[in-house]
Design a protein around this nucleic acid. Structure first.
Lengths: 194, 194, 194, 194
DNA sequence: CATGAATGAGAGTTCATTCAT
DNA sequence: GATGAATGAACTCTCATTCAT
């Protein structure tokens, strides 16, 4: 039972995820999810009691999966510059909307939440991404691939630019060229200076 | 009459503005504005027919006022570096929430709108800000205050970082120190390199 | 003043008439009439206090004008059969919608009213039309143009058929051919039998 | 469940029917029906989403029941003249308001609809009634009960007279005597002529 | 567990009607 | 007289949430 129950819960979360991707966060009603999941109104309430709760769990699931993918998809022995390029390429795909994502829904959700604690998922994701990039830069510097005096600050700068690009893409649209330009600029700062 | 009417319209917009600042965009109902303005249900509809319409006009008003402030507050004969510093300081105040703003409501609004045309206000504001900064950098370079090879790209980079900081401040909170660090980093890039 | 006032009243009634023709009775609001007349909301209330009152006066005006037209348009020395034919032709035009009319609005109004007294305008109009037709038939019989045993009943029958055609034209549409057929049938009864 | 649901739907339609009989079509609001049915505001919307939709279904139901009644109530072996007399008597009852009916609401509804297609229920009802009467006349003629040269036209004439009487009864009232007179007149035309 | 009918709160919207100017 | 801003009642419609089955 608990097994079946867990399975259904996961099914609901996966379905809800697509709903959030389509409609954002605030526009999604319990009814939307009920309809998408093709279950009964009451049925949904057995598992979740609000869209907020559902979205939180969707985010958690997302998090886990992202971590997994990260682990697996990075070739162990790749060059730091390649890994960074790969990461940026992935980010680009995401913010150009080539891969449907929860960006908009997440921002909407956290606008609502006003949760500025350490357990804020966006914060955690951001911080860990900064850390990863910092490490990449550092090892790149060691190998002579990169030139950088303050890896931590540069990493953080890169992440803020990415975040700026993300919000721009969601609120006013952004061209591929514009994204490329920003990424170039950032990479040049790391490589060109000798 | 038309005078009184225009005055009331402005009063409504100003009141609505505070409501949007408090509650964002999607959470605001016509009733919220009616209550805040202390007018009758039907009364509001004499002036505006939806929260969307109201918000658009609030944005317009905001825009005008921002332009005016910009014009007046910049000392004519100041050094480019001072002006840039002033601008960044203003941005900092805004994104630290020391000056209540429409940031959140605006983003929410444009999430909803999906208006990626040239008349998108966010786009216009962003582009003109980039231009202003570019000019500042260029004249700073001329005077030997700044060092910068690609003023346009640097300006755009700065704006994306600011946008990233803004969204960070609204969705997970940000410390003054963090803001300072990012601004420092950006200014160093302009000044420190020789 | 009273003169100017009377003029304005008439202007309102004439304008309102076109509104009723377009939208029927129940769909017309005081606002519709205010807009059409291009006067102020309060202004209309100086003259009339409800759409019902306005419609009643429109009907009265209509009545007067119809009477006048009737008087004038009928050639004094015409043959009864010609006059009847003329009358039926006019009715046909009206019910085929070639001349915009108040038919629908009137029916709607009297559905609402439930006024079954002698002062009911529809009743008066109907009765006087029956009388006119009866007279026509009688004088036609005298001249040997018509054959009819019960002029009164025949007249009444004709009017009910016309009324049936009217409501049919307003609720499900009716072809010119169908109208012609009914009129033919009626006229044949008067002429063909010898 | 679906059974219970269908039952409730029928209950609503039957209750709504009485509301439409009392108040006509345009005067009926969803709230009126909600109140009459003693269900909740939202409850009604589970079954129907507008008074228009409800009225259409009421008409359908009405139609079915009328058909059934017609079938059953006509004695198989009756004389055509008796059947016609029976039919006219039924019509008389209806238009004298002895049997509460949807006449007014129907006309109001079709004023609104402006549906002049073949699927217009009033049109269908009218045409099929004409056909039935035509058949009755024809078989009456065969048996020597009636005399009639153009059964189709006579049938159509009868129906228009009935329609005229109906509208008269709803908009200005009509006496039983007047109805009798018209029916007499029509029947005489069929019988008296030899 | 699961269903889906039912409820009722609350948002949107329109107008008749009033009233200070 | 005339204006038109303002009011508030009345309707429509949608959902979160509950509960009998």
């Amino acid at each position: 039972m608990s097994d079946k129950s867990a399975q259904k819960k996961k099914y609901i979360l996966e379905t809800a995820r697509t709903v959030f991707m389509e409609k954002g966060y605030k526009n999604v009603t319990m009814k939307d999810i009920v309809d998408a999941c093709d279950i009964s109104r009451g049925g949904l309430y057995l598992y979740f009691s609000s869209t907020r709760e559902i979205f939180l769990e969707v985010l958690k699931l997302e998090q886990q999966e992202t971590d997994d993918v990260f682990e697996k998809s990075i070739p162990k022995e790749a060059e730091p510059s390649d890994i960074l390029a790969l990461f940026l390429k992935e980010q680009k795909r995401e913010l150009l909307g080539k891969k449907p994502e929860l960006i908009k829904a997440s921002y909407e959700f956290f606008f609502e939440e006003q949760n500025f604690d350490k357990d804020n998922i966006l914060k955690k994701q951001f911080d860990s991404a900064v850390l990863v990039i910092q490490r990449l830069i550092e090892s790149g510097v060691e190998r002579g691939e990169f030139y950088c005096e303050e890896p931590r600050r540069t990493a953080s700068n890169i992440m803020y630019v990415l975040e700026g690009l993300k919000i721009a893409s969601q609120t006013r649209g952004i061209t591929e060229a514009a994204v490329d330009r920003e990424i170039m600029y950032v990479m040049q700062g790391l490589i060109a200076e000798e």
